[in-house]
Amino acid sequence: MSAAIPVVGPQPAPPTTADQQSRRIPSGISRNRAIRLVLNRAPDLVCTNARMVHHPYAGYIYAVQQRAFGRSLHGVAHILVDRCSGGTSTSDPWPDPVLLEPGETLDAVPATISEEHAEDGARQCAVRTALHRRRALIPIEVTSVSSAPLLYKPNWLLDLQLPADGGTVKVLVDALTGAYHLVPGGVVQIEPAAAG
């Protein structure tokens, strides 16, 4: 077991209530590991805050089949639809999601994309991906296997302080894969009063 990484600064923001019918994917990466993943690349930074946040997705699993020249190829496509942007992407299989307990709350941005739009996008994505890679002239059959219209994916949101009073940046770490990205908005300079 790794030693806890000290975190200084403010505590997590109050969470927002999530849809009670929704599911969340359990985190696969601990808070400490998420911090380490980032600090390994930037050892001079100091993590001042780390909290779990969730992002709304819709998850769909399709069976895809292509037949041509007497041969048939089968596959399973896992498609995620971002319920905020509508963006679709193929995915590796995700861990089994769990239903939110009554009263359980998540720190999540609200879903703005409708279920119908998400499902349509997911199906198109499955077809497009298969055709894109296998070229557009071979018939394809796409059958729905399962779906989760609201699936909360866990992330770690880290506040990092730059060295030499350079301000702070936020980094969002995928709590399933460890992939990360800086939160846009640039470096936030620390006010003298707050820094002091």
Binding site: D82, L157, L172, A179, L182
Partner: peptide, 8 residues
Amino acid sequence: MATEASVR
């Protein structure tokens, strides 16, 4: 992760 980060 860019899209998710952009709404945070």
